[in-house]
Nucleic acid binder design. Structure first.
Length: 613
RNA sequence: GGUCCCGUAGCUCAUUUGGAUAGAGCAACUGCCUUCUAAGCAGUAGGUGACUGGUUCGAAUCCAGUCGGGAUCACCA
């Protein structure tokens, strides 16, 4: 807490930012001089005063009763009296039971607000040579089917957390590990070969990833058919699944791929290229991007060396059949396979190799974050533990950003049962809805066609992104396709609307942010005005907390609170029509600062805000 | 069965390290556009924080147990 404000703020501003620090010191002195008891400054903390009471910060006095040997009320009053006399910024206080509500004077708040106005990166820490380098992996799709709602959550969370980490002064490398090989990829390849009749994205007009996905489904259909036939001849389900001809073929195809068979590789390259061009469109629409691409076809062999190394170090052991394992029973886990008997890699082998590779690729890397669903909690627990046992110090800096599944009202999405919500379709629906709503409201006269389209995208994406990001990533979330995402209330469009509304006021006032006048300390602040400034004070802490918790939802909640409060202010007080020019200027400045904070907060969520809507 | 996660208003979600009378939005009902954008504002109603016990001055939050839901425990990824 202490250090970072000073990095970005000039000394006077730094002072204003640390009011809690100052109050803590005063409280320490109060307890010391009134009750002759020493308390640690670090143990003193304040909470935000609840709305129904007057005050800015609240001290809970229960911890000091032992020292005071008095009632909570009396103790609070004693401390309150002391700090009012000994801290120039404290203008008053009130006591409710064991809670001391402290009121700060404008002599604190107005200079603080002036500081916010002149600091365009207020609340963010700078990224420079000394920044911690973090790699954050997210997205990591399979190249056998198009992206669905679950991937959307992954992409949005990953992108936003990367922004949060940057705002907290870290240097972030966004990585995407594409799962472009393996038996599941062969499925769509084989099905296309058998039933595709040479179809291409061009010949069908289909988006490449959707075309490939179509054959992934076709494979499954054929496989089920063959299995059923075999079961009818008397085989058990298990045997039937193993012996189905198409399953035999696919294993041969995988062997061919690994052997580098030209025909197989060519087919693989062609179909993957289709998928990539499809993904590119979806990524672009979603507004996500990557600094470093990894492909499993390049990395899947990595890790075998690590297995050798682990065997030498006796971290792993080899069974008679040649398979390699690690015994984790001492850590409350199981035995885990790290290399197959035939010497081929499993997921774990490759993940070990890839992790090590990444720290080689970026020698200054300090932390590695994996944005992967919580169904893989166990895998990552094991992965990190193995890396630690192999002696990599950085293993303790690996973190599984584990997010909950997106569930439909009827439960989990199942691609085989056709209950997946397709990302592209969903996006299109969002755009259609925002277009329809915008047209109904009829507020965009004068927009060119292009501007209008742009706006529909901005709003549609805002609604979807906010909807998915306001929920704590750790928790599973429910999405009901029948109830389309709202545009009213605690939503992205509401916040975007408020931003547009603010810009409208500023336009009408010809407000120039480069020529803001310093607000004078003797100005009287109305309740909502004070509330807004108090909320601004919370912004740096919120950014810090959101980054610390890897939780964009923290930012979403904050932004909503700020936005709602601004709208209340807007309804209660005239801005353009205010006759007192000092007050009018202050209200314009407040509007400008709120608009700017809304824009930057939403930016942390990957959501852009329009100037008109 | 072992391990892990979850259970807050009719619905979807908040409630930072334990703090005041548990908050929003949606849905329902009532007001407010000759006034800076009504995608807005104000209001009514809605709760045994699954249940039982424990720790504490204080528990939705920590601990134990019960019930309910989910994930995972592959020579799959």
């Amino acid at each position: 807490m202490n250090g970072y404000f000073s990095q970005i703020c000039p000394s006077k501003f730094y002072l204003y930012m640390n009011i809690e620090q100052i109050l803590s010191e005063v409280v320490k002195t109060a307890v010391s001089s009134v009750y002759q008891t020493e308390v640690e400054v670090s143990a003193i903390s304040f909470q935000k005063t609840k709305k129904e009471f007057e005050g800015d910060f609240t001290l809970v006095v229960f911890p000091y009763l032992k020292a005071s040997k008095k009632s909570p009320e009396q103790t609070a009053t004693d401390i309150g009296n002391y700090i009012r006399e000994n801290c120039e910024y404290v203008s008053g206080f009130n006591v409710v039971k064991g809670f001391l509500n402290i009121v700060l004077d404008n002599s604190y708040w107005i200079p603080f607000f002036n500081g916010v106005l002149t600091n365009s990166s207020f609340g963010f820490k700078p990224v420079n040579e000394n920044s911690k380098h973090i790699m954050l992996e997210y997205s990591s799709p399979n190249t056998n089917k198009p992206l669905h709602l679950g991937h959307v959550r992954n992409n949005l969370v990953g992108y936003s957390v990367a922004e949060l980490l940057k705002a907290n002064g870290n240097k972030v490398t966004k990585a995407n590990l594409v799962n472009d090989r393996g038996i599941h990829i062969c499925k769509s390849m084989l099905a296309w070969k058998k039933f595709g009749n040479g179809e291409t994205p061009e010949s069908t007009g289909m988006k490449g990833d959707h075309l490939v996905g179509k054959y992934y489904v076709a494979f499954d259909k054929e496989y089920k058919k063959q299995t059923a036939e075999l079961i009818n001849t008397g085989l058990t389900k298990e045997d039937a699944e193993k012996q189905a001809p198409i399953m035999q073929e696919i294993q041969e195809m995988l062997r061919n791929w690994e052997a580098g068979d030209k025909e197989t590789i060519d087919l693989w390259k062609m179909m993957n290229a289709w998928v990539y061009s499809g993904f590119e469109v979806t990524y672009k629409t979603l507004g996500v991007d990557f600094d470093k691409m990894y492909y499993e076809s390049n990395t899947y062999l990595l890790g075998k060396e690590t297995v050798e190394y682990g065997l030498k170090k006796d971290v792993f052991y080899k069974k008679e059949d040649g398979s390699v394992w690690i015994d984790l029973t001492g850590d409350g886990l199981d035995h885990k396979l790290v290399l197959r008997a035939d010497g081929t890699s499993v997921y774990m082998t490759q993940d070990l190799g890839t992790a090590i590779e990444r720290f080689k690729d970026f020698p200054d890397l300090k932390q590695l974050i994996y944005t992967v669903g919580n169904e893989q909690d166990y895998h990552f627990k094991v992965l990190f533990l193995i890396l630690q046992k192999l002696g990599y110090d950085w293993a303790k800096e690996c973190y599984h950003l584990s997010y909950g599944m997106v569930e439909l009202p009827e439960g989990k999405m199942k691609s085989r049962e056709g209950t997946v919500v397709d990302a592209d379709e969903l996006l299109q629906e969002m755009f259609d809805t925002s277009e329809q709503t915008t047209k109904e409201l009829g507020k965009i006269d004068g927009f060119t066609d292009e501007e209008a389209q742009q706006l529909y995208h901005t709003i549609g994406l805002g609604a979807l992104k906010y909807f998915m990001l306001k929920v704590d990533p750790k928790k599973k979330m429910l999405f009901d396709p029948k109830e389309s995402i709202d545009f009213n209330g605690n939503t992205g469009p509401f916040i975007q609307y408020t931003h547009a509304r603010i810009q409208s006021v500023l336009r009408k006032a010809s407000f120039n942010s480069a020529a803001i006048e310093v607000i004078k300390t003797d100005i009287a602040l109305q309740e909502k005005e004070k509330e807004l400034i108090r909320l601004m004070y919370d912004f740096p802490k919120t950014v810090e907390e959101a980054g610390h918790l890897y939780n964009p939802g923290t930012i979403a909640n904050y932004t909503y609170e700020l936005t709602k409060t601004y709208n209340q202010f807007y309804h209660e007080h005239p801005i353009l029509k205010e006759e007192n020019s000092a007050i009018k200027n202050m209200r314009l400045a407040l509007s400008y600062a709120c608009g700017s904070l809304i824009k930057r907060s939403m930016g942390l969520l990957g959501i852009s805000v329009p100037d008109r809507m």
